[in-house]
Structures are given as C-alpha cells and as structure tokens.
Design a protein around this nucleic acid. Structure first.
Length: 887
DNA sequence: AATATCACG
DNA sequence: ACGTACGTGATATTA
C-alpha cells in the first residue's frame, strides 16, 4: 500500500488570500442571488493544484472558531486593531464549507483555539502515526511546524503558487530552524497579530540573536553579558514582550481536538452534490471539468461538434448575403507577414463555411463580400487578418469588431493571442487552443484530418460570434467603447498599413559596417586575450567572470544567481583597476551592435522589396504602448556613435527623398503636469521652459534658469524621470551615484516645490486600491491585484505601477490618436508620404522630395493637436537623407 | 527553456 | 525593516 498522506489546510487564511487574489474579479464572480463567489472559486483552484500535487489520502480544512481564544485571554490586544473581514468575503465562508462537504473534505473548528492549533495538533498526530504531512496556509506562522515529515506550503502571489517550507528552506530563508522561528517571532513581534516584540528588532537582528543564543530564554540568561549597546537596552526593556510573544507565537500541538485521523479519510467528491453546488454558484468552468471527468475514458477534451459546409468553386453561390459576418483567416505561425495560409471560415447567421483553399477568397462573391464596406466583419486580430488578405490581393473593408483588441482592453492580463485560450477566460469551453490542435515546437502541424481541422476553424468563428455581445457590454461597463472604436480599431488599421509599407534599408551600408566592426572586434579580442593571458569565450559571462574575478583577482561587486555579475554597471567600477576592463566594455558594445543590428537586420530585409517590415504588437504591453518584433525597430541604437551608424542604413524609398522624424518633447512629464494639475509644473510648460532646468532652479533654490549648472540639470532630470517611475530614494541614489540621504533630500525638495505631484501619487495609489486598477485619460485599465499584497515588495511594486501606468499609458493613448489623425491627413491630402515607424513618442516618415515642405507643415501640427491637455504638447522634427540625419 | 546582458523610450 | 526605479525585444550561452 502506498504511503499515507495527510493534507491540512488553514481555511481562513487561504480564503483570505483567495479573496484578494481575485479581488479585481469581485463583481464578475457573483451567483444569480448576488452572492460573491470569487474566494470560493480561487480556493477551489488552489485545492485542485494541491490535490494533484500531493495526492492526499486524508484531508482536513481547519477554521478559526471566533474572535476569543486562549491567546486573547492571555493578551487582550491579540489580533486587535485588524480591519474587519470584508462582508463580501465573510458571506462566502459558509458556502465554502458547503463545497468542502460536497467534495468529501472534512472541515473543523474548535472553540477557544485558532485553526493553527488544530493544524499543529493534527500534524503532530499524523507525523507520529507515520503519515507524510502537507500543510497549506496563506501566512508564514505555520512554518514553525516544518519537520522531516511535515512540509508547510505558503501561498505566493495569488493562491495557486505555493512556496514549500521544509526545515532546509526555513534555514535558507530565516537562518534558523522551524522551532527557532518561534523565538525569532517572539523577538520581532507581529504587527498583523498586534503584539509588539522587542523595539527595533526586525528579522535580521532577530535571526542573528537566535542563531547565537538558540532561544529567547537562553538569550535572556546571557543578556547581561552582552556589551553595552542600544540593542541590549531594548532587549532588557522588551523582555516581557518577548516572553509574551513566545507564548502567543507558539502553536499548541496538544489542543483538545476531537478528531481521529480516520475521520479525515478522503474518498473523493459526491459528484451530484458538487454539480448542484457549482450550478448554484454559477461555476461553469468547474461544471465543464465535471462533465469531462464523467467521460474520462474517451476523448477527454473533446469540444462541441460544429456544423459546417465545406466550400469549393462549385458551391460558392450558396453563400447567403448578410449585413454581418464572422470571419477567420488561418495562418500557420505568428509571423503573418510570411506565414503559410491554412484555410478560412465564415459564419453567417447560424451557417458556417470552411475551406483549406484560401484562393477561394479571391473569387466572387467572397472577395466582394470582404471588400464591401457595408458588410460588417467580426474577426480575431484585425491587423493580422487584414494583412493576410492584403497578401492575397484583397483590400478588406469594415473589419468592425476585433475580439483580440476587445479582450486586451477589458483585461490585458486575461488576454491571449490564442483564441481558444482567451475565450476560456470568458467561460467559453467549446474551442480548443491551437496548441492542443496543432501541437508544439517542431512537431506542430496542421491536422490532415478535415474533420478535426475544420471543426477547429469553424469553432473559432463560433467563439467570436458567441462572445461579441458580452465583450461589447463589458467595454461599455468600463467606459471603453470610445477607446475601442475610436482608438484601438483605427490604430490597428494604421499599423497594418505601416507594416505593409515597411522601411527601406540599404544593405550595402550594413555590409560596410559589418566589415569595419569585424576588424575592430578581432583586434579587441586579441588584445583582451593577451591581457588576460589566455583565450576564452568573451561572450560567456561565466568564463569572463572566472578570468576577471579569479584569475585577475578583481573585486567582486555584484553577484547574480548563477555567479559573478559582469554587467556594464560592474565593469565601469572596475575600469581603474585593470586596463582589460575597458577593452571588454568596448568589445561588448561593438559585438552587441554587430550581432543584433548589423547581422540581425541584414537577415530580415525583404528580398522582394528591399524593405524591413516589422510587426507591431498591439495587445501585449501592460500600459497600452506598442511593441515591435521581427525585428524590433523600437530599439535601434541612438546613444553611442557606433550604434547610431546603423541608422544610416535606413533610407527613403526615393534616392532624393527624405526620412522625416518627429518626436513629442517630454510627453510623459506633460501628461504628469496635466493629470496632477500641479500649478508650478503646468506653469513651467506653459512658459516653455526647459523643464529639467526649471526643476533644477526650483529644487536648488536658484533665482533663474541661467544659474543652473550642468550637474544640477542632470540631477533634476533624473529626479523628473524617477517621479514618473514612482520614485524611491534608493533608486535615485543609484542612478545618480549619490548618497541615499541626499537623494531623499532632492525628493523632499521636489515635493515641496511641486506639491501637486505628491498629491497625484497618493491619489493614484489610493484609487488603485479602491478600484483594483489604474486608468489612463482614455480609460485604458491596468489591474493591480498586488496593491493589496501583504508582502512589502510586491505591494510597493504595484504602487509604483499605479503611479506610472496612467502616465505611460496616457502618453501611449495620445500617440495612437496622433497616428490615426496623421494617416487620415495623409490620405486626405493624397500624399505619397508614408508613416513607417513608431518609437513610443516618435514617428518616422518616408517622404518624397517634393512633399517635404508639406510634411513639415502637417506632422508637428497633427501631433501637437492630438488631444487638448492643460499644458501644451510640443513635437520637434528633424529630416535628412537617412534616419541618422533625421535628428 | 532559463539566464545574463544590453539596445530603446 | 523590508529592497527598488517604469515599459519593452534580441542575442548568446548554458543547462
């Protein structure tokens, strides 16, 4: 017989975590009676993960019985001052227990004791009876139970990720054993349980003390022998607190639990009860799982069969006419500029039509329908679809609903480029993912079996049609209909055009660079080998680390998780110590340009038209920016002269034409000035000051901008950047290489000078906490569940994000509006000028000679008038016969 | 497939 | 006391 395994779950704490893990879904997870269900749902997800991983034979979920326990008797303030459990959570707890019952899982509570004590008692009993024990909790208090046969899992970011605390892991994390962890807690106190511990003792000090003395009692035996220090005074003053803390922190492993291990035996769910429960809770996902398990033996992930007609030249005339159709164009692989077509599907009313032969699309009446502006098409990925059709010689019109874009706006975390995966997030399970149907990696292929492939294609159109209304309603609820119709959809059309345009690249210029760089790299390589005294792989940070820090004995400044860090930051500090370091830096820089840009770009020039066609990803970033891939044209070098040379290869279509570039000046700070309504910053922009100099003048108390020194301006600039990122004194001090104290002073002075900025930052965090998301000026959302995290770092990150996202995201909104207006203007004026690249705050145009003057007139004007803010938008332009000159 | 590094706004 | 700047993509090495 296999080993017995006991699973013990801290019901309250996991439910609490589960609730906040899905806090942003609070309104979505409601059953028809209005009961919130998010915590139950997430709890069940956690259970699935743990049950699968642990395969327990026995299970118990322990709950707290009430507010008063033997601990409150000992110390009245215990767990005092806590926020009340949200009503939306407490209403779920009885139902959670009902679900556990239906699942055949015992739950239990005990008057006067906490769930911790029940778990401690049963864990001890289990371990003694020879069970393997797994404990799951949402906080670390229970980790003191870890032992050879007891593993304590604590939920991490969400509830389905668990961190396993074994005695070894405890030692790594805290430096002490699980039992010593109690003593550590006794010294530190626990703010969330509301007991104090010893003043000024945090984890670091507590761990050190316990490692030295072994326990609180032992520590106080020897406290008099310690040499005089503030710490000693604090320890003596806090003795009572420490001893009390130890009593409170110790889990009682002999509480009067009236349960035997046999009571906890797990025999599986009562499927009928569970189904009824899921129906009551409206858990369609779990119902679908149950249904699947029912027919476990055959085809366990089979989806609904689609009805469809296979199209051919002979039956095209059967196609009904309609004002609205759903269309899916199949391509194999992500890069739709080059991907092979696999087939297509139309859904018109209830009828679906499919084919593998995409050339049918060029036939009547399909082509006419696709090009008819009166026939609305619903698609998944407008840009990909319209690019694909363009490759087939079809100019698609009226692609008016894009499920991919809608889903990105509704919740970019839940979004996916795979339709099958995406729709699961909307409780639609009748479509497999491409991965399931095609397979992955080099084994991926389109199924030969028509029944399988057509069912998948047809299923996609069904999914799009089925979810359209729901998605539109959600967009409306979010006040995002305008963002969807007037920004994202038109942006997709503009981007499709830009991708089709591409930008012309002169390979000969790259080839010249390739030769020059090859020579320089060879020389540097030889020199470095001589200086190092041996040959090694310069591109390997690992081998380089050995040479620098072991052979040459340079001081180790920073480590990575795998070894020594050899990043620029580190190497810059080592420059003085050894001449080889500068050569390595130079080698690194050139080698980067050579491999990523010179060789990389040469590989992706389209042989047909001599141009580079990037793809813009419109539904990827968390903030609403675009990203650019295959190749990335948004990170072409500009900061070093060698790097800039790359830009000489980007040229206009006509030999005598121009590359014209126009970028927003300080758009993010202007957005900040607008959303914060800070009068001083708005004043600076309205007057047209150099903003960084203006900031320097204010924070360094100068009388005029003319007195600002270059160093002061540089520092002010860094502060301005820092503000946009959600500043910290540490980050600023590192960036400017100044002391943390000084950085802190700069920041304080900044907030004094621009009081509206601090108010904005506080407001941004507060609103994110209340709403669960941050929002741009155009109502683009970013959900921030971590804003409620208990972990300081996780929470702080979410807070900085709450500050930064509206700024970066609003700037992205503005740029998208500018691009739409720009394309419209180019079309209206019938210009040959093409918009070819976007780099976040900059647009690049390919301009025929005779249109340069017109472009100079319209481009900055269109960009500056994209939206009306409380401060002016300014765009600066440059032009020349290649991208290098256009500055 | 993960990690380190470095290119951009 | 905690340990940090915000957002991306490509390359080479190593596992």
């Amino acid at each position: 017989m296999s080993k017995k395994k006991l699973l013990l779950i801290d019901g309250n704490s996991v439910a609490f975590r589960a609730f906040f893990a899905m806090y942003q879904q609070l309104d979505k997870f409601k059953n028809p009676e209005g009961l919130h269900t998010n915590a139950i749902y997430a709890f069940k997800n956690m259970l699935d993960v743990v049950m699968k991983q642990e395969e327990p034979t026995h299970i118990l979920v322990a709950f707290d019985a009430g507010k008063t326990t033997f601990r409150t008797a000992m110390y009245q303030e215990y767990k005092g001052g806590r926020d009340k459990t949200p009503a939306e959570l407490s209403e779920q707890l009885p139902y959670l227990r009902e679900m556990l019952k239906d699942m055949g899982i015992k739950s239990y509570e005990l008057a006067n004791y906490e769930a911790d004590d029940i778990i401690g008692t049963m864990a001890k009993e289990g371990a003694e009876a020879g069970y393997e024990v797994a404990v799951v909790s949402g906080d670390k208090d229970l980790t003191q139970l870890a032992s050879d046969h007891v593993t304590v899992y604590v939920t991490k970011s969400g509830v389905t990720k668990l961190e396993a605390f074994t005695p070894e892991h405890m030692k790594e994390v805290n430096g002490v054993t699980p039992t010593e962890f109690i003593d550590m807690k006794a010294l530190m106190g626990d703010p969330s349980d509301n007991y104090p511990g010893v003043a000024k003792v945090g984890p670091k000090t507590a761990s050190k003390l316990i490692q030295e003395y072994g326990s609180v009692e032992e520590l106080y035996e020897h406290v008099d022998e310690m040499k005089k220090s503030k710490l000693k005074e604090n320890l003596i003053a806090g003795k009572d607190n420490a001893l009390l803390g130890k009593k409170l922190a110790t889990i009682k492993c002999d509480s009067p639990v009236e349960l035997s291990l046999d009571d906890l035996k797990y025999d599986g769910s009562n499927v009928d009860d569970l189904r009824r429960f899921y129906e009551k809770m409206n858990f369609r996902r779990f119902l679908a799982d149950l249904a699947q398990k029912g027919e476990l033996t055959e085809n366990k992930t089979e989806v609904k069969k689609q009805d469809y007609t296979v199209l051919s030249l002979d039956n095209l005339d059967q196609l009904p006419k309609a004002a609205e159709v759903t269309f899916y164009l199949g391509m194999f692989g992500d890069n739709y500029h080059l991907a092979d077509f696999t087939g297509f599907a139309f859904k018109i009313g209830d009828a679906t039509f499919v084919s593998r032969d995409v050339f049918l699309l060029q036939e009547s009446p399909l082509k006419e329908m696709l090009e008819d502006p009166e026939v609305q098409k619903n698609v998944f990925d407008l840009k990909r679809t319209s690019y694909g059709l363009y490759r087939l010689g079809i100019k698609a019109e009226a692609l008016s609903f894009d499920l991919l874009l809608a889903s990105y706006l509704i919740d970019n975390e839940k979004n996916s480029n795979d339709l099958g995966e995406l729709v699961q997030g909307y409780d639609y399970y009748d479509l497999k993912t491409d991965l399931e149907v095609y397979g992955k990696g080099k084994n991926a292929k389109i199924p030969e079996d028509d029944a399988v492939f057509f069912n998948h294609l047809a299923g996609k159109t069904s999914a799009i049609a089925a979810l359209k209304q729901t998605m539109l309603e959600q967009l409306k609820d979010h006040e995002q209909d305008d963002l969807f119709d007037s920004i994202e959809l038109p942006t997709a059309r503009v981007l499709a055009k830009m991708e089709m345009n591409g930008i012309k690249v002169q390979p000969s210029r790259l080839k010249e660079l390739e030769n020059d760089f090859a020579v320089r790299l060879k020389d540097l390589e030889d020199k470095i080998y001589r200086e190092a005294g041996e040959e090694f792989n310069l591109n390997s940070p690992k081998q380089l680390g050995v040479i620098l820090f072991e052979k040459l004995g340079l001081p180790v400044i920073k480590k990575t998780k795998t070894g020594y860090s050899t990043s620029v930051e580190v190497l810059n500090q080592l420059k003085e110590k050894s001449p080889v370091v500068s050569d390595i830096l130079e080698y690194r820089q050139i080698s980067k340009i050579q491999s990523t840009y010179v060789k990389g770009l040469l590989d992706v020039i389209d042989e047909q038209d001599g141009r580079i066609h990037t793809r813009y990803l419109q539904t990827l970033t968390a903030t609403g920016r675009l990203s650019s891939v295959d190749p990335n044209l948004q990170n072409i070098p500009t900061r070093t002269e060698e790097g800039k040379q790359i830009r000489k290869a980007f040229v206009p279509s006509d030999p005598d034409g121009y590359i014209y570039s126009c970028d927003y000046s300080q758009i993010e700070l202007r957005v900040l000035a607008h959303v914060s309504a800070d009068p001083n910053m708005q004043e600076a922009f309205k007057t047209g000051y150099d903003i960084h100099a203006h900031t320097a003048m204010r924070i360094f108390h100068l009388n005029s901008v003319d007195e600002v020194t270059p160093l002061q301006r540089r520092r002010a600039k860094a502060v301005n950047f820092g503000i946009v990122y959600g500043i910290s004194d540490y980050g600023l001090s590192k960036n400017l290489d100044i002391s943390r104290k000084q950085a802190k002073e700069f920041i304080e002075e900044y907030f004094d000078q621009y009081p509206g900025i601090q108010a904005y930052m506080d407001r941004a965090v507060k609103e994110a906490r209340e709403k669960g998301y941050a929002e741009t000026i155009m109502h683009r959302r970013r959900y921030l569940p971590d804003i409620h995290a208990k972990n300081f770092n996780v929470r702080s990150f979410a807070e900085r994000t709450a500050i930064n996202s509206p700024i970066q995201g609003s700037a992205a909104d503005i740029m998208k509006i500018a691009m739409i207006n720009m394309q419209k203007k180019l079309d209206e004026l019938g210009l040959k000028t093409k918009m070819v690249v976007q780099v976040h705050d900059e647009l690049i145009f390919d301009v025929p000679k005779e249109e340069l003057e017109t472009v100079k007139q319209i481009v900055p004007a269109v960009m500056q008038s994209a939206v009306q803010l409380d401060v002016p938008l300014v765009a600066d332009a440059g032009w020349g016969h290649d991208w290098y000159e256009a500055k």
